[in-house]
Structure formats: structure tokens, C-alpha cells
Design a protein around this nucleic acid. Structure first.
Length: 430
RNA sequence: UCCCUGAUAGCUCAGCUGGUAGAGCAAUCGACUGUUAAUCGAUUUGUCGUAAGUUCGAAUCUUACUCGGGGAGCCA
């Protein structure tokens, strides 16, 4: 008999099959026992009755515990009540291993307890749903860019000193070349790739040694970055909007069961498919002043300001053209206002920033001066400056945080549940 | 780095102005032919985070430390 996965079980209605999996849950009475069998693709209920099964099967079933691994022979029957539409009449059970005292019970647990057992926590229903959605989001992102003929150009993870200033870097020894650093962004490399292939993106882990302890921060997270030659800041925002909507639609189409188990309503997700709102930084400051914020024009928006701004909208909001002093050295000066740069942040109501974007400074002199003004050494940016020497070009790009996107789409409050093994200030194992 | 908050049974927590601990769940045993966080009955469970101090007496008050949780800054 061929091996069968539970998600394909409908194709075997009224047949007898062999299945392998784990006991997700068990309950029963004197004459009937229910096993929820989980194999990673689905959970389907199996039934053992004292009448339909032999005594040995009944006794084996009685010994089963949560997360015991088993192999069963069963008849697949219809069962309209269940999610799969099927149920299993169990004829025979072979125990692979009885799991003793599985620590994660059916009742509530605290975050520290669960994080220390992340390797086991992943087996829970909610965690499996989140991981499935995450996987589909990754797929959607790749599909989106490939459909548009982008080239996937990965950036290095180990780098020299080059990179954004501000955030702290993780460092490691690199032979006799001193320290190497784990990348905080692939952007500068992606700009080089962009000059070679026009429309490019990279997707990989990034590392920030920030001592952030909030529900939106990880020290290791996955970021997709895209860079497009001859795109200005407007084009850039259009691209982000199209991409974000594509991803949301893909999840709606492919993950209905997972969204349901997460308690995420499709109507709420559809709010992310409406046209996004756009607000310039200066208009945002005006709006904030009307609402009673004490923000000083020229200073960065605080977390409270972002909440205040987005609560008027149900769709994501672009805030564009921030003050130069709040943003990175590589952003292009706004030709209409030398104190502003051509950039945007995408804020999602009830969550916060998910995408950071900008048009890049393409003038050699201005960029060199920016590097100096930001207290950086132009010599360590020599290859980056080359891009402005040999056929400089207007270009723009952005970075979207994968885990934040998963959070926003699944409605999961804390980012630590959106990555298989989260790395945070306080957690490095498992 | 700063602010707030917490650490009591395997888990989640209660324990008031000091008098050496309690609930629910889990586990174990039992009851029940359809349950789906099954239900019902019974039983078991503790260096009260660590160290010192105040006191006749500390889970409770004081100090320090350790480890969490939430947030700010920073960002995705």
C-alpha cells in the first residue's frame, strides 16, 4: 500500500489506507476512542470502537499519549462535520514510539515557557498555520518578481565595514582581515546588481544587534529588498503597493483554512487590497498638529505619531519625503526642498512600519558630501561611489520585513511567532 | 541604554495591613457509544527566582543580583 498524506485523503474515500503521524489529541469513553492524527499536512480524526476494532487495537489505543508517533491502517469515510470532510475508521495501530509527558499541553502557556520549547511548540495548530502562511508569502514574493522579469541577486551576509550607520552590527573574526560583520541590509550590493541587471531583488536574513525588546523586533529577520533602475520615488511606491496587494491576495487564495484557524477574517485582509493612502511628511506633521501632537517639524515621527496617523485609515499608508536628518545618507535630496529626501515608509494601521524605501542619491558629489556629513569615511565606500562614476542613473528601491508582513497578514500580535526559530535579545536557543 | 512590570505546584495564576501555601488545568485511577481545549468523580504535586537584612516570625517588608514580559529609542 502506497504512503498517503492526510491532505490527500479525500482521494481515497472508502478505501483502506496506511497512514503515519503523531497523536495530536485523544479522548474517549468506555466503548469509543477518538484520535486526532497529525502528519504535518493536516489533522484528521480517527475512531476506534470496541465493536469495530479488535481488542488489541483497542488496548494499543488506550496507551497512546499526546505526540506519540504511530502508524495506522484505516478505512477512509466521509464526515461532513470535519475540516477535511473525512474521518478514519481505525482497524490497526502500530506504535512507533510512545511520547512520555509532552510538555506543551492543550492548555495555556506563557511566552518564555513556549519559546524555550520552540522546537516542540511548532507542532501546535496555530504555529503550523502561521508557518504555512509564511511559506506562501515567500512564494508569492518570488512569484511577483519573477512574473515581472526581475532577477534574483542575493547579497552577501558577511561584509566589511560598509553598511548603514546607526544600528549595531554583529561581528565575527575573519581570518587575517580583521572583523567581518553580519549584514544589516543588502541594499548597497543590490544597487550594484541593479546597474547590471536592471530589475533585481534579494531575499535573505539580516542581522541587527539592537537591544530592542518589542513585539516588532528580532535580531535576525528576513528581508526582501528590490531595486529598479530608472525608477523614481513615485514608481517605487507604486511597485510596493502592487507587491503588497499581490501577496495579500495570494494568501487569501491559498490559505483559507489557516486564516480561519488563526481567526483572521478575509474581510479584514481585503482592506489591504484597497488603494493605499499617501501623505507627505509635511502634510503628516500638519495633520498631527491638528490632532494635538507636539511633534516638531523636521524631527522624525515617533511611534505614537505613527499610530495617530494610521488610525484614520483602514488601508496601509505611505508617508513620503521625510527630513534629510532622519534618514540614511544614500537617499536622494528632494529637488523641491533641500531639507527633504525622496523616500517613503509604508505604515500599516494597528501595526507600524513594514517597508522602508527611497530613491537613491545618484550624484557623485552630493553622495560623497553626504557620506562626510554623516560622519562616515568615503574611502570605505569606494566601490559604492563607483556606481555614480560609471554611468550613474536614477534608481529606487525598498526593503520589506518578512516577519512583519507575516504578522500583519496573519494578525499574530508578536513577531516571535512568525519565524520558525526567533532570535531575540533574550532568546538564542533553540 | 532608559521607563514600566513580573518570578508561588508540570502549566496558568490567587495568596489584602507579616502568623511557614491555595484554585483551575495537566498527570494518575475510575464513569460514560460521537467526542472535537470532551465531560463528570477521586487522588498526587511546592528550597514561594538567588543572596543578605529587618522581625519572636517573611511568599508578603528592605537592599542587591539573576532571569523574564511590555514599551521608548532605532528600525524592517
Amino acid at each position: 500500500m502506497a504512503k498517503i498524506w492526510l491532505r490527500d485523503i479525500k482521494d481515497h474515500l472508502n478505501q483502506e489506507v496506511w497512514l503515519k503521524g503523531w497523536v495530536f489529541n485523544k479522548r474517549g469513553s468506555k466503548k469509543i476512542q477518538f484520535i486526532e492524527l497529525r502528519d504535518g499536512t493536516m489533522v484528521v480524526q480517527g475512531i476506534v470502537t470496541i465493536n469495530d476494532s479488535n481488542q488489541e487495537t483497542w488496548d494499543v489505543c488506550s496507551e497512546l499519549t499526546q505526540e506519540s508517533s504511530i502508524e495506522i491502517r484505516a478505512q477512509v469515510v466521509e464526515h461532513p462535520k470535519s475540516v477535511s470532510g473525512c474521518e478514519l475508521i481505525i482497524k490497526e495501530i502500530k506504535v512507533i514510539q510512545i511520547a512520555v509527558d509532552f510538555p506543551i499541553t492543550k492548555k495555556e502557556h506563557g511566552p518564555d515557557f513556549l519559546l524555550k520549547r520552540r522546537h516542540l511548540w511548532l507542532r501546535s495548530r496555530l504555529q503550523r498555520s502561521i508557518m504555512h502562511v509564511r511559506s506562501q508569502i515567500i512564494k508569492a514574493l518570488h512569484n511577483f518578481f519573477h512574473e515581472k522579469n526581475y532577477t534574483h541577486m542575493d547579497s552577501p551576509i558577511l561584509t566589511g565595514t560598509i553598511g548603514e550607520e546607526g544600528s549595531t552590527l554583529f561581528s565575527t573574526e575573519y581570518f587575517d582581515k580583521g572583523n567581518a560583520y553580519l549584514a544589516q541590509t543588502g541594499q548597497l550590493y543590490l544597487e550594484a546588481s541593479c546597474a547590471a541587471l536592471g530589475k533585481v531583488y534579494c531575499f535573505g536574513p539580516t542581522f541587527r544587534a539592537e537591544k530592542s525588546k518589542t513585539r516588532r523586533h528580532l535580531t535576525e529577520f528576513w528581508m526582501l529588498e528590490a531595486e529598479v533602475a530608472f525608477n523614481n520615488n513615485e514608481d517605487n511606491m507604486d511597485l510596493q503597493e502592487e507587491m503588497f496587494k499581490y501577496v495579500v491576495q495570494h494568501v487569501i487564495d491559498t490559505c483559507p483554512l489557516q486564516l480561519k484557524s488563526l481567526g483572521r477574517k478575509v474581510e479584514d485582509l481585503q482592506k489591504f487590497i484597497q488603494p493605499f493612502a499617501k501623505l507627505s511628511y509635511d502634510d503628516a506633521v500638519d495633520r498631527l498638529h491638528e490632532k494635538g501632537s507636539k511633534i516638531v517639524r523636521g524631527k522624525d515621527l515617533g511611534a505614537e505619531d505613527e499610530v495617530m496617523l494610521t488610525q484614520d485609515y483602514e488601508m496601509p499608508v505611505f508617508i513620503y519625503n521625510y527630513p534629510k536628518s532622519c534618514k540614511a545618507f544614500y537617499m536622494k535630496k528632494d529637488p523641491n526642498n533641500s531639507e527633504r529626501v525622496l523616500c517613503s515608509d509604508l505604515l500599516v494601521p494597528g501595526y507600524g512600519e513594514v517597508i522602508g524605501a527611497s530613491q537613491r542619491e545618484d550624484d557623485l558629489e552630493t553622495l560623497t558630501q553626504n557620506i562626510i556629513d554623516f560622519g562616515l569615511n568615503p574611502e570605505s565606500f569606494d566601490w559604492y561611489l563607483d556606481l555614480r562614476k560609471y554611468g550613474t542613473f536614477e534608481h529606487s528601491g525598498f526593503g520589506i520585513g518578512l516577519e512583519r508582513t507575516v504578522s500583519v497578514i496573519t494578525g499574530v500580535k508578536h513577531i516571535r511567532e512568525t519565524i520558525p526559530f526567533p532570535r531575540m535579545m533574550t532568546h538564542i536557543e533553540p
